[in-house]
Design a protein around this nucleic acid. Structure first.
Lengths: 380, 380
DNA sequence: TCTCCCTTGTTCAGGGATTGAACGTACACC
DNA sequence: GGTGTACGTTCAATCCCTGAACAAGGGAGA
């Protein structure tokens, strides 16, 4: 079973596959040295992998064989629903993005409309990249709400009512005819930042996405931590003010009602009219006192949540993503101030809070990362 | 090398040894089922382990053999400092407790006095059990404050000023001449409950110890999760009321200032005079309205923290320990009510909050567990 | 150009490890 | 007392890793 000989072989096969993928191209001798396996074992396993089509072998002078990862054919698609936008990317398996597009979109709409819009965008990208629909091998789908990891269905019926009870993966599979993995958008953002962005190489990370709403995700030992029912990391609905505004999650005074982009937009509407979060950030960078103030206030509220996070998980790195993250120090300095005041000193010292490096693309890139490496979850 | 057959055998040997140690005594058939190995393999490995003196085999009716861990010689000591008590246990390696004693003790005293008191207690237990000091092979030490996992020194200088900068393990080693492992008392309580108590067999658990202060600890995948600097799980110093009372951690309105035993004692002093936490709980069970009310209020404040915990970690089980836990439903029902109101519904549904089964002994038993199985920590 | 030496990858026998099946044994239940 | 069941052991079969031997090719130096 788990510890049988075949399992051992499987382990070694995976070890070699991983080593090859990480290094790009290696000779068998190098492989043997790096993995600690004997050349004989490497030889037989490499042959197996070649027969299975998992690696490619090219002659490289002398007896040397260059082992490289099999050029995976086909394309993958990432779909990222934000609260107010929809972004789709078409990429090669190697992660190279061929085409990408984002449109404003209200996720409050019902699921079928959302999925139809995504489908239209995908078709558009296919046309632009000049490839056929059959090339798509898999789709990663991000949604801004808690997903039950068992069923793939939205865990809360109040957060995205239009999506309650729908199985988005099954639905999209039905439309496109390919496997779809669905995950929370904050989880995907965390994955992307850990793979290519600000959290590259870090194994203990918290990620907060502050867009229209507030989402968060936790990486423990480099793997997504989901908790018992997949809602681990839902910092957006931590209670900051028990008597605060009603939140769409059904509770009161959630962080999201105080620091979510929607709240900020509402706050500046009387003085600045209807703006987007990005515009609000621009104005703040331009020196607008009012916008700076609401962002700083949001930062202070976020700081309370980050302080809780520090006391509970004591992370070494917190990455801030989403549209509001573009405010940079205007947002992060108030966060740090509050963390310094509310978190245990040693935990506050240990944490650094930084802006994500992938900006608005984090979600969709995470969807691409997610669909290509299925083993990103912590065991339960 | 690392992945050879002998390594596989080594892995399985260790697997069986661990399984035997955790369960105490097992037949080979049970062992085979639990480990997933075949009875044949178990048979040969058990023989090896017996020959190596690592396990003992006793006949148990029929062909059944009872495999138990080898009776390791020597004794271990567990020391548990609470905020207001000191408890010491002397046990065999097999965890059988030979003698145990608790005294009231103010941990606010300086470290040397505390360690001297512990030493005196240990000597007393040795006399009572009729064994010599040389029998002691190791000591586990629990302290009610954040311990830096790297250095073993108290991480915060404000929480236990008398212990700031001291290396308690080194100091106790100097006095007793044996290895000492030191850990946070909540971590030890969690470990004990997971080994013998309410969290037996559970792998994702949060533990809260509500005594004079409030401490907490998190088990992820069955291992203590410490975070970047060892303060993961410090729920006692989550900020509940930003404008609340000053806390000894230096911040304001920490959970501990609202739900810690000390606060409850202060609250009932005008009406009930000076009482202990246990007395307060007794009175509440007896029907005293005032005591019931302060416990319920504490529960509501704890509920806020547990709700945060649910949103961040989404645990399946929260175990409440410490003296206040004896209030049982009087404390737990308000917690659940608040969790239901403040946590994300799916996270609130997923969690069950229960009283610990080991009572006041959790800390000292955890110290015994800790000293015998060094590998209880999550990587990093 | 030729030779020697080193590296590389393959093959093969040998030694380990796990497993399924078969078997003897002892208890429990009827 | 008979039967069934669970348990532990043994053994052949199977699978896997490794060390050694070996063929093939390149590079350095004469």
């Amino acid at each position: 079973m788990a510890n049988s000989l075949t399992a051992l072989r499987e382990t070694n096969r995976r070890l070699i596959t991983e080593t090859v993928r990480k290094s790009g191209a290696l000779t068998q001798a190098q492989l043997a040295r790096q993995t600690g396996l004997s050349p004989a074992t490497v030889s037989t396993i490499v042959r197996e992998l070649r027969d299975a089509g998992l690696v490619e072998i090219s002659q490289a002078g002398g007896r040397r064989h260059l082992i490289s990862p099999a050029r995976e054919t086909g394309l993958v698609v990432g779909v990222d629903f934000g609260h107010s936008h929809l972004r789709v990317a078409l990429a090669e398996r190697s992660h190279r993005v061929l085409a990408e597009e984002a449109i404003p979109f209200d996720v409050g709409a019902r699921a079928p409309e959302g999925l139809s819009a995504a489908e239209r965008l995908i078709v558009g990208l296919l046309g632009r990249a000049g490839v056929s629909r059959a090339e798509i091998k898999a789709v990663g789908l991000g949604l801004p709400g808690p997903i039950d990891p068992q069923t793939g269905i939205m865990g809360s019926s109040t957060i995205l009512p239009g999506w309650a009870g729908v199985d988005p993966a099954a639905e999209l599979t039905r439309r496109l005819g390919v496997p779809v993995v669905v995950d929370n958008d904050a989880n995907l953002g965390a994955l992307a930042e850990a793979t290519w962005g600000a959290a590259k190489g870090r194994r203990e990370v918290a990620y907060m996405k502050i867009g229209t709403g507030v989402g968060a995700s936790i990486l423990i030992n480099g793997l997504l931590y989901r908790g018992a029912t997949g809602t681990a990391g839902e910092l957006g609905h931590i209670t900051i003010d028990e008597n605060g505004r009603l939140c769409r999650c059904g509770n009161r005074g959630c962080l999201e009602t105080l620091a979510g982009g929607q709240q900020l937009i509402d706050l500046v509407r009387p003085t600045h009219g209807q703006v987007t979060v990005s515009r609000l950030v621009e104005l703040a960078h331009g020196g607008d006192i009012g916008c700076r103030r609401v962002i700083a206030d949001a930062g202070r509220h976020l700081g309370i949540a980050v302080a809780s996070l520090c006391n509970i998980l004591n992370p070494g790195l917190v990455v801030i993503g989403g549209a509001l993250a573009e405010a940079g120090p205007l947002l992060i300095e108030p966060i740090m101030t509050v963390v310094g005041r509310l978190a245990i000193p040693s935990a506050a010292r240990a944490v650094s809070v930084v802006k994500g490096e992938l900006g608005e693309r984090a979600g969709v890139l995470g969807a691409l990362a997610r669909v290509q490496s299925p083993n990103v979850e912590s065991a339960l």
